[in-house]
Nucleic acid binder design. Structure first.
Lengths: 257, 257
DNA sequence: TGAACGATATAACTCAGACAATTTCATGTT
DNA sequence: AACATGAAATTGTCTGAGTTATATCGTTCA
C-alpha cells in the first residue's frame, strides 16, 4: 500500500520547518491541543489503537508521542484507565516545547503577564550575577549581539535573533545552570513580544539604548546598576506589549524559529 | 521461554517504589548516567539494537526511554548519527525527573549552591506575591502544613512532606503558573537539604519559627515582610547545609566550569 | 586544485500484529 | 458488610521487517 508512504510524506512535509519526526509532529499537535484548552485537564485521550487509527499512523509512533507529552507533564497514562490530561499545575510550563506550543497561538493575557512577572524577578538578578561573574568572552558575545540588533533592525529575523542572543548570553553569564535553563522561556517571550510589538506599532522607542545600559553595567562589573537597568528594560518591554494589545486579534503562527 | 518474563519482573521489582514502567526505569537509569557525568555531552549512545540487546529489553522499550530523555533535553538523536548526549546548557535542569536524577547521588556543591541561589531569587518574591494574592483556602493549607511540621518532626517522612507542602502551597499562592512549575525544584532542594542536615547534625535550630514568620506575613497581606521572612528562611537553610557539609567543601562561590 | 554532485552505508524511524501486565469494576462468598 | 475472585479494558512489551534521513566518501566537472 502506498498509503503509509503518502501519509509519512504529508506529515513530514507539514513539519519540515524543524525536521521533526513523525512522533514529534504528533506530540506537537496533541501538545497544542492540550495547552490551548481543546483537551482539558482530566480528559481522557482516545485509546492508542483508536487514536493511531484516526491519525493514520502506527501505534508505535503514537505511543512515542504520548511518552514525550508525559515527559513534559502534560499527560499521564495508566493501564485500564487510559491517558489523561494532567492538571495544569503539573505541566512543565518552562519546557521549551511546552512554551512554544503555548505561543503557537496567542496566549492569554494572564499567562503573558505571568511570564513577564517571572522575567522581572529573574532577569535583573541574573544581570547582577553576570556583572560579577561574566568572562571577557561572554562580554564579547553580548556586544556582538548588541551590534546585531543595531545593524539589522528588530523588524528582521536576524535582529530578533540578536535580541534573543543578548538575553540568552546574559543568562549564561550568570553562571547559574538553573537560570540558564530558563533561557528558552525568556527567549520565547522576547521573540513573541517583539513580533507582536512590531505588528501593532511599527514605530516605537529604540530599544538599543536600554540594552546598551545593561551591557555597560555588566561590563563595568556593577551589579546594582545591572539589576536596575535590566529591570527597566523588561518593564518597558512589558509596557509596550500591554499598551499595544487590543482585544482578540488573531495570532501569529511563527512564534518561534 | 521465561526469559523476558523474569526480565520484566526483575526490572519492575527494581522500580516498584514508583510504579515506573520498563521504559521509565530505562530512562531513569540512562538519565542518571548522563547527569552524573558517566556519559558526557557529545558522547554517542550505543545504537538501538546494541543497547536494547545489552539491557535485554526490546527496541520499543529502549526507544521510548530515549524519547523521554530527548523530551527533557538530555539527548538528541538523528539518523545515521545516533543518539548523542546534549550539552549541559540544553538540559531541562528544572524538570522534576532531571532534578531527581541529579539528587539521586549527592550533587556537587556548585549545583547545590546554584539551586539555592535561584530559590533566594524566586521564593521571596513568590512569598510577596502570595501575600497579595493568597486565598483563604491556600492560607489554610499552609497552616495545616505548618502544624504537620510541628507534630511530626522533620526527622520523619511526614514532617518532610509537610515542609515541602508548605513551600509548594506558597508557590501556588503566588498565582503565577510559571512560578508554580518551579515547585518540584524547590521541593527537591527542600527535601534533600533536610535529609542531609538531619544526617549530619540531628540537633539543630527549630525551623518552625522561621516558617511561622513567613506564614504570618502572608496572612497579614504584608508583601515586604513576607519577602524578608522567606529570604531569611532560605538563607538559613542554605547556611545549615553548607555548614554541615564536610569533606570536599571546595568553592561554593565560583560557578565556572 | 577544488568544488559540486551522486552513490552508499548506517543509524534512527516507522510499521504491523501478537501477547503480557496492570488495574478497575462487578460479582460472589464468607 | 467486608473481602476475595475473576473478567474486561487499556496500556505495556516484544518481535521482525521494511523505510527514511543523512554523514561520508568517491566521482565528475569546472
Amino acid at each position: 500500500m502506498s498509503n503509509k508512504k503518502s501519509l509519512a510524506a504529508r506529515a513530514n512535509a507539514k513539519a519540515r520547518r524543524k525536521s521533526l519526526r513523525l512522533h514529534g509532529t504528533i506530540a506537537r499537535d496533541l501538545g497544542v491541543l492540550i495547552v490551548s484548552g481543546r483537551y482539558k485537564p482530566g480528559d481522557i485521550l482516545n485509546g492508542e489503537i483508536d487514536a493511531s487509527d484516526r491519525l493514520q499512523v502506527s501505534r508505535t509512533a503514537y505511543r512515542e508521542a504520548v511518552r514525550i507529552l508525559a515527559a513534559k507533564g502534560l499527560v499521564e497514562s495508566r493501564p485500564k484507565v487510559g491517558t489523561r490530561v494532567s492538571p495544569q499545575a503539573r505541566w512543565h510550563m518552562l519546557d521549551p516545547d511546552v512554551l512554544s506550543w503555548i505561543f503557537e497561538f496567542e496566549p492569554d493575557d494572564t499567562l503573558l503577564s505571568n511570564l513577564f512577572e517571572l522575567r522581572k524577578i529573574v532577569e535583573p538578578e541574573a544581570a547582577a550575577l553576570a556583572a560579577m561573574r561574566r568572562t571577557d568572552e561572554e562580554l564579547e558575545i553580548m556586544e556582538k549581539a548588541l551590534q546585531g540588533m543595531a545593524t539589522h533592525t528588530l523588524a528582521s529575523e536576524a535582529g530578533r535573533l540578536a535580541d534573543q542572543e543578548f538575553h540568552s548570553a546574559m543568562l549564561r553569564a550568570s553562571g547559574n545552570a538553573f537560570i540558564v535553563s530558563l533561557t528558552s522561556g525568556v527567549g520565547a517571550a522576547v521573540s513573541w513580544t517583539t513580533i507582536y510589538k512590531q505588528r501593532q506599532n511599527p514605530l516605537r522607542r529604540d530599544p538599543i539604548p536600554d540594552h546598551q545600559k545593561v551591557f555597560e553595567a555588566v561590563k563595568a562589573s556593577d551589579p546594582k546598576a545591572a539589576h536596575a537597568a535590566m529591570l527597566n528594560l523588561v518593564e518597558l518591554a512589558q509596557l509596550d506589549t500591554t499598551n499595544s494589545r487590543k482585544p482578540r486579534t488573531k495570532a501569529a503562527s511563527s512564534a518561534r524559529s
